[in-house]
Design a protein around this nucleic acid. Structure first.
Length: 227
DNA sequence: GCGACAG
DNA sequence: ATCTTGTCGC
C-alpha cells in the first residue's frame, strides 16, 4: 500500500477526498491512559474579505486557571479554496507553520471546526490531530452534518449530534441562554472527554477561551499587517 | 434533480 | 471567514 502523508496539501479536490478516506482509519477515538490535559491549545485562521492571505495562530492556556502561557502566529497565502468538507486543506498548511514556531507542546488541541462530525468522519480536528500526533477536539459554531434534539437553557446542557445512525458529536451550551457549540472528537479522545475538556476551557462566553484568544491573536496580526 | 454546506 | 452601526437586553 502507498503511504499517505497527512502533511501533503497540494492536491485537487478529488485527491483531497481520497486523502481523507485513506487517513480516517488512523483516527483513534480513545484518550491515552490517565489523560488529564494541562496545556490546552486553541487554533484559528483569519483572512480578509476576498483575500487569499491567511493569518494563523495558536494560543496555549494552562489548566487550571486558563492563563495564556505561549502563543505563535504565521502569515501565508491560502492555496486551497473553501470547500465544505475540505476545510483542513485550506487552513492546516498555515497551522503547521505556526506549530513549528510554537515552543510549547500542548497536551490537547481545540480546533475551530469539526472533528468526526464530518461527512467522511475526518474534519480538520482529526486531520490536525493525526498530523501532529496529539489529542485533538473539534469545536464549531455551526453544524456541517447531523442533527440534534433540544437541549436545556443552562450552561452544561447538551444534546447528541447524530448523523447516519451514529453519534458523531455533541451540541453543548457553554453559557446560559446562548447558542451552543458543536463538539466532536478529533484524535486520541472520546466524545465524553472532548466535552469535558471544552467545558473546562470555557469561562462565561459562547466559545471556549482557547478559541476566543486564538481568534483575537490572528485578528490582531491581520490588523497589524495592514498598517 | 433539489437542497445543505465547518471556516 | 469577512463586510459593518446601532441597538436590544441583562
Amino acid at each position: 500500500m502507498t503511504d499517505v502523508d497527512p502533511r501533503r496539501f497540494d492536491l485537487t479536490v478529488e485527491q483531497a477526498i481520497a486523502q481523507q478516506q485513506a487517513l480516517r482509519s488512523r483516527v483513534v477515538l480513545a484518550p491515552p491512559p490517565g489523560f488529564a490535559p494541562r496545556l490546552v491549545a486553541g487554533l484559528d485562521v483569519s483572512m480578509e474579505r476576498f483575500g487569499d492571505v491567511g493569518y494563523a495562530g495558536i494560543v496555549v492556556l494552562e489548566q487550571p486557571g486558563l492563563r495564556t502561557v505561549d502563543e505563535a502566529s504565521a502569515v501565508a497565502p491560502l492555496r486551497f479554496p473553501y470547500v465544505p468538507g475540505l476545510l483542513s486543506f485550506r487552513e492546516l498548511p498555515l497551522i503547521v507553520d505556526v506549530w513549528d514556531r510554537l515552543r510549547t507542546r500542548p497536551d490537547v488541541l481545540i480546533f475551530d471546526g469539526q472533528g468526526i462530525a464530518h461527512p467522511r468522519r475526518f474534519g480538520i480536528a482529526c486531520h490536525g490531530g493525526v498530523l501532529f500526533g496529539v489529542p485533538s477536539i473539534g469545536c464549531a459554531k455551526s453544524i456541517l452534518v447531523g442533527r440534534h434534539g433540544t437541549l436545556g437553557a443552562e450552561r452544561g446542557s447538551r444534546a447528541p449530534l447524530e448523523h447516519r445512525g451514529e453519534i458523531v458529536g455533541m451540541a453543548v451550551r457553554l453559557r446560559d441562554r446562548v447558542n451552543p457549540v458543536y463538539v466532536s472528537p478529533g484524535h486520541l479522545v472520546d466524545l465524553e472527554t472532548a466535552v469535558d475538556v471544552v467545558l473546562a476551557a470555557s469561562a462565561g462566553y459562547r466559545e471556549p477561551e482557547t478559541t476566543r484568544r486564538a481568534h483575537r491573536l490572528v485578528n490582531e496580526e491581520r490588523r497589524k499587517a495592514k498598517s
